[in-house]
Design a protein around this nucleic acid. Structure first.
Lengths: 244, 244
DNA sequence: GTAATTTTGTGCTGTATAACATATCTTTGC
DNA sequence: GCAAAGATATGTTATACAGCACAAAATTAC
């Protein structure tokens, strides 16, 4: 990880162009702020570039920063029993990470790492908390986000515990499509996960992810070429996901 | 369900004693409000008495009220595949229910029903939303609560998917102790769940909940008498839960 | 360019747990 | 008080999936 703006983040006068650019990308959050608050925020943030497979935060750490993913992809995961990781969610631009544990007064119970080279803004959580306490609209932004995530998390629990392997993998593929979309051809998932990550997202062993994936391929539901996955029969995939 | 205050909720002048009493129980929320806001709230709420096993809200309904559990116990559950319900959490006094779906702009994806006779305050969600938007401290209250719940939900997913039956049941028993505490003897769980509910909380079949429970009993970890459960070796139970 | 390492793929075996069947015990309704 | 319905208990069978072993392919390292 390297900090792009360490040279200029303390400079005076008109705001650094780079920082201004970042703020404009974070408009869903920034738009809730008044000018003074925007200023506070712009003084507090730093921009960082992560390589692929770099850790953004570790399990057990005390949260200090909120992360805003500007470009790239990040997985948030829990270290399960016997090294079996569980991917809890995958983030896309522009989304926010790392605030849950702080707001709940705890340490990180998940870890996060990049799935691709990613650009991330770091915002001290003390600053965010202050802004929330003086700006109800910003608070509302977080409430909405948290409510959506909590709903998804509860949904996920039932999916992972009650569906069979085929249903779980189908569900994951649809989730990835919904989250990251597809490439120009309209079919190829715009994310290339390893079979292991796919397994960790679907709560199964790597062997079974591979097996079930090729099963889907022979059933002509998908087309697999290395890590590229084309979804060709979404309707049937959705059916498999529904029925478990 | 019957509304206790329908006779007086529209009365003028000094506040209804009953309502005032309720508000004082909801102090964690009410303390964030100024006098005018407290007034708005007291005008908007109604108090209701539920019998055992009554539904508080249904799956698929459009949320209109937030529920505040003043006394009793409520289970929040998802209807899973093939009628297999999943209890996602159990509420105790004084906790709030039914706001997640509304804030996320959706319908209920869970249902809630009473485990015991319960007293519940209903607050129109429009009122709560307005109050949040004009009171950052109230917003912060919800943010903290949501962050804690989201953490628990993620934790739960790993527990249910990666632990074996014994670990899952041990976890559930400890969860119930932590939530509802024990009776005067210091051992008996202060909640009497059916074996089915215990199974739905632990993601297993009723048969297996029964079997594993009596297994724990022969191992002298617990003492079972009908629906009464005494936890006698918490340390070992904790160990079983940890190891999966 | 070759070796080493990681990722992907496939088959076999064992086991945890669901599913089913049936019996007993408990609660509820009249 | 008795019938009916529901909850609890226990044994048996079936199966989905983990776990392991091993081979091939792809990526990385030097």
């Amino acid at each position: 990880m390297c900090c792009i703006t360490y040279l200029c983040s303390k400079k005076m006068g008109k705001k650094d162009k780079n920082i201004t650019e970042c703020l404009s990308k974070m408009n869903d959050l920034v738009n809730t702020l008044n000018e003074k608050q925007k200023d506070v925020l712009s003084q507090a943030i730093t921009v960082h570039q992560y390589k692929k497979n770099e850790t953004v935060y570790h399990y057990g750490e005390t949260p200090k920063y909120m992360f805003c993913l500007l470009s790239g992809k990040i997985k948030v995961y829990k270290e399960g029993i016997g090294g079996r990781n569980q991917i809890v969610r995958v983030a896309k631009p522009v989304e926010y990470l790392g605030y849950r544990a702080y707001f709940a007064n705890g340490k990180f119970i998940t870890a996060a790492s990049t799935l691709e080279p990613s650009c991330v803004v770091k915002i001290p959580l003390t600053v965010i908390k202050e802004l929330i306490l003086e700006n109800a609209e910003l608070g509302w932004f977080f409430i909405k986000t948290l409510c959506q995530e909590l709903g998804r998390s509860d949904q996920r629990t039932v999916n992972l515990t009650q569906k069979h392997i085929r249903g779980r993998l189908a569900e994951s593929l649809l989730y990835l499509k919904e989250r990251y979309g597809v490439e120009a051809d309209g079919y190829t998932l715009s994310i290339y996960l390893s079979r292991e990550d796919l397994a960790n997202l679907s709560n199964m062993t790597t062997s079974n992810a591979i097996r079930t994936l090729s099963l889907f391929a022979t059933d002509k539901l998908i087309l697999v070429d290395g890590r590229k996955i084309k979804i060709i029969d979404e309707e049937r995939l959705r059916q498999i996901s529904r029925l478990g």
